[in-house]
Structures are given as C-alpha cells and as structure tokens.
Amino acid sequence: MSVRLPRIVDEVVSRPTWPGTLPRPMEPRNIGVDYDTAWTRKPWARALRRVLVDNVTRPFVAVVATPQVFGREHLDPLEGPVIFAANHSSHLDTSIVVACLPERFRRRTVVAAAADYFFDRPWKAALWSLALGTIPMERNKVSRKGADLAASLLTERWNVVIFPEGGRTRDGWGQEFRGGAAYLAKRCDVPVVPVHLRGVRPVFPRGSSTLRRGKVEVRFGDPLRPGQKVASGKEEDARHFAGRIEGAVALLADEAESDWWSARRRAAAGETPAFRGPDASAWRRAWALPASARRTRSVRSKSSAKPW
C-alpha cells in the first residue's frame, strides 16, 4: 500500500520532470576527479581539519600502525612548498604520511588520492577531503585536471603528497614511478622529498577489509631537485627525474631492510636491490618478499559454510 503525499507537498518535494521535447543539458558533476575541494582549504575547514588530524587521525595511526619516523632532519632546511613522493601499498598510506609529517608541513599539505576510491561518493569525497586534505587524482585516465589543481596549489605554497606508482602494489613489490610528481616538480620548480613506508601492507593490504595492528616505519630521504643535467648536456626530462625519485625511494627501502651504511655502500656500487622486485615468476617474486611486505593474514573464508 503506497501512501500518497498531499499534492501540494508532492509538488514542492518532487523535482518537475523535464519536457521530452527539449534537449537536456549536462549538469556539472561534483564527484570523482571533478569534485571541487576548494572549500576544504578555507580557514574554517583547515581549523576543523587540524582538530580532526590531531584528535582522530594521529591517535588512530598511532594505535594501528605505531609509526616510527626516520630522516625527519632532511626536511628541516626546506621551506616549502614541497612534493612528498612515497611508495604505495595500502589506503592507510595516506593517513600515515599525513600523521607523520612535521607540523609546519602538515598544516599546509594536500594529498593526491585516488579519485575512484576517495571521491566516488559525495559523502566520502567530503569526508576525506575534509579529514585528510585529499585532492582527487585520476589514476587510470590521463587527465590534466588533477595535475593542474596540484600545480596551482603548489604555487599557492601548499605541499603535495603524491604516490607516483599510481596505485597500491598488488604483490608487495614496488611499481614503476610515473612521471606525475616529477612533472609537477619541474613545472613549479619545487623539491621532491622521497618517502618510504615500510610494513603497511601487513596492516591493511589491498583487498582486505580488516585492520591488523603492526609496526610501520616512515623514512624521509634527501630532497631531490629537478633539472639535473644528463649526459647529453640537456636538462633531464620528467621521465628521467621520475627514475631518480624511484631510485631514492629504493635506497630508502634498502636502508629500511638493512642499515644506512650498507645501503649506501650498495647504492654506490649500483647494487641497491630492485625496488620492483626480481624479474622472475610470480611465486619467486612472492617468495623473495621481505617479511615487512608480506600479506600474512587469513582471509576469513565463508566457503566452508557456503557450498558455492
């Protein structure tokens, strides 16, 4: 039995239908990569975010991931704006990086986050962009929209956190660094700080829906500046710079698994372990993973109760 609203109420509440004889213009979408995050950088939103980050995000990260931060001294001489380029293995990375940045950076930082995960619904877009200062970044399609926004924010002296791999790792090994961070750094002439996160995958791996407490290490490396001269004498391109950033993160990864000195020596000898893992079959790549990147958890399978 349906209850009909009084006509007057109905006419007010329901949207009138569009005449079929008229063409209907596309309405602007405010979702996904098109989501307008400008409001989250207004003073009131920043104040609210400050409260949220200090009272929710950081305690949460401290409990779940117990992050240990190394190399914060590399940030001291920097004034900003800065691009932070980190490896990416979990949706938790965003929160951890934000939680571990020194305060003066943290207060003025945006995080480039996957538009299709953090911005796929209006409430999620609002929540994450308010709570973590995320800005939408397309990772599948090539779109200038995200890059333009990041560039304009950099010129407004905002720091930007970018995960240049363009997505979380599937097997625990690193993926190729794409050129986005390098391009932005060149375009706005800002330094790039390599960041390595170790041990996040066991806490909240891709495809999981539950958290497991673990210990995470965050390493900041020496800032890199674009514009190094290459062999031909010309200035390096974004692609080359991206390679340098990846190398810097790989060095941090090696340091995380061994120690600073031996990592340096291996780097000098060109023997830094491959960031993207051994070039071998899937099982050998998995077998060679360091324990900190293994996905050790039993997925609660309902299979024993369900026949199919």
């Binding site: 050790t296 609660r300 399978s301 299979s303």
Partner: peptide, 20 residues
Amino acid sequence: TDNELRHALGDRVFDAFAPH
C-alpha cells in the same frame, strides 16, 4: 578451503602461490 590450505602450507607459501 583456503583456510585449510593456509593451515597446511603456511601463510608464506599460500600468499606466494594462491593469488597467482
């Protein structure tokens, strides 16, 4: 079941082989 395989072979073997 996956859990039984995981129990018999251990996490390391399961995670290295099952997903692929």
